[in-house]
């Protein structure tokens, strides 16, 4: 039930560099904190973010406990052809979320 916000331009010229913004809802619990009763709060983070463009991987990021809640990842790629950008986040406790966006390249 993860919420994600994706910002990809609808259209781009072939060869243009496009900026892609992704924001996902996640607590990114570090695993170093303790509750008021002293019990350790188990780690719960996103470990990997991958973006594929028509099946080809164009961006990959490994995430660590120092990254704040609701990771905001911005990156760029070259618009090569019309198609689908797929985003996948995977993490602790079997966390997995996917989103897609389409782009038209003229």
């Amino acid at each position: 039930m993860a919420n994600a916000l994706i910002n990809v331009p609808d259209r781009a010229r072939r060869g243009e560099i496009i900026e892609i913004k992704t924001l996902i809802s996640h607590p990114m619990e570090t695993g170093y904190r303790r509750s008021q009763l002293g019990a350790r709060i188990p780690r719960d983070i996103i470990r990997l973010f991958v973006c594929t463009y028509n099946g080809t991987e164009v961006f990959r990021a490994e995430l660590y406990p120092a990254i704040a809640a609701n990771p905001f990842v911005v990156f760029s790629t070259v618009a090569t052809e019309s198609g689908t950008l797929a985003f996948q986040w995977t993490g602790d406790n079997g966390f997995s979320a996917t989103e897609t966006a389409t782009i038209t390249v003229d």
Partner: peptide, 14 residues
Amino acid sequence: DDDTANPGMLAVLE
């Protein structure tokens, strides 16, 4: 200012 960077928008979406 940017609705795709504002983490509050995740809650609005929900």
